[in-house]
Amino acid sequence: MGRTRRSRTPNTVRERTQDIVSRAVAAPTRDHTLPHAPPRRPTRLRISQNNPWSITVMSFLFLGSLGVCVLGAVLATSVIMAVVAPGAGPSLSQTLFIAAVVVAGEILLGTAVACLCGFTFNHTARLSGGLEVALTDDLADPAPAGGRGEEAREAPAPADTPS
């Protein structure tokens, strides 16, 4: 024998939907927020030493890519000058040679200065303890430097004294 089929009269459909609605409304609601969230503490990062060789390599790569961009800009400018005013400026080969010499000097001097800065940072970090950075996700306005508040910003100007 098969199951008996329940009739679908409008009254039974209404009873079922009211029963479902009453169950949904009667379900307890939960608040998933904490009653009191822990205070946000900033993460402190201390940089006390660096690797001068890594600084040298990164500065060489950065300055080399910057030099390629400069050579491309010089080439484009020289071609535009040759099209707009032919024979008015130096030739393309002279322009590129001078630009290549300047870029090579920039790469060598910039790399040397970056390496010296790395050594200087290591030396001063040994004396002072390094550089400390506080990282936080608080988006509020930071406190002004020196811990001074609004009263320091809105201090009245001193009155002129007669002499």
Results as ranks from 00 to 15, higher is better:
1 M>W: 15
1 M>K: 10
2 G>Y: 14
2 G>M: 15
2 G>Q: 15
5 R>T: 11
5 R>V: 13
6 R>W: 15
6 R>S: 15
6 R>M: 13
7 S>L: 12
8 R>Q: 12
8 R>I: 11
10 P>L: 13
12 T>W: 10
12 T>H: 11
13 V>P: 06
14 R>T: 12
14 R>E: 13
15 E>V: 11
15 E>A: 10
17 T>S: 12
17 T>M: 15
22 S>P: 05
23 R>K: 11
25 V>N: 07
25 V>E: 07
25 V>P: 00
30 R>K: 13
30 R>S: 14
31 D>A: 02
34 L>A: 08
38 P>C: 04
41 R>G: 10
42 P>H: 05
45 L>A: 05
47 I>P: 00
47 I>E: 02
47 I>Y: 04
48 S>N: 07
49 Q>S: 12
51 N>Y: 10
51 N>T: 09
51 N>C: 07
51 N>V: 06
53 W>E: 14
53 W>C: 15
54 S>A: 15
56 T>M: 13
60 F>G: 07
62 F>S: 08
64 G>H: 09
64 G>D: 03
66 L>M: 07
68 V>M: 09
68 V>T: 09
72 G>R: 10
77 T>S: 10
78 S>G: 04
79 V>K: 02
81 M>V: 08
82 A>V: 06
82 A>E: 06
83 V>P: 01
85 A>M: 09
88 A>W: 02
90 P>R: 08
92 L>E: 03
93 S>T: 13
94 Q>V: 12
98 I>H: 11
99 A>K: 00
100 A>N: 04
100 A>H: 07
100 A>T: 00
102 V>W: 05
103 V>T: 01
104 A>V: 00
105 G>Q: 07
105 G>C: 05
107 I>A: 00
107 I>P: 03
109 L>H: 06
109 L>M: 08
110 G>R: 01
110 G>A: 00
110 G>E: 00
113 V>P: 10
114 A>P: 02
114 A>F: 05
115 C>V: 13
118 G>P: 01
119 F>E: 03
119 F>I: 07
120 T>W: 11
121 F>E: 00
121 F>Q: 00
121 F>M: 01
122 N>S: 02
123 H>I: 06
123 H>V: 10
124 T>N: 11
124 T>L: 08
124 T>I: 08
127 L>E: 08
129 G>N: 05
131 L>M: 04
132 E>S: 09
133 V>S: 06
133 V>E: 04
134 A>C: 12
134 A>L: 08
134 A>N: 10
135 L>W: 03
136 T>C: 02
137 D>T: 12
137 D>P: 08
140 A>D: 09
141 D>T: 13
142 P>Y: 01
143 A>C: 11
144 P>H: 06
144 P>Q: 07
144 P>E: 10
146 G>S: 03
146 G>Q: 00
147 G>L: 03
148 R>M: 13
148 R>Y: 14
148 R>P: 14
152 A>Q: 10
153 R>W: 12
153 R>A: 14
153 R>E: 13
155 A>K: 09
156 P>T: 04
157 A>D: 14
157 A>G: 12
158 P>H: 06
159 A>Y: 12
160 D>H: 15
161 T>Y: 14
162 P>Y: 13
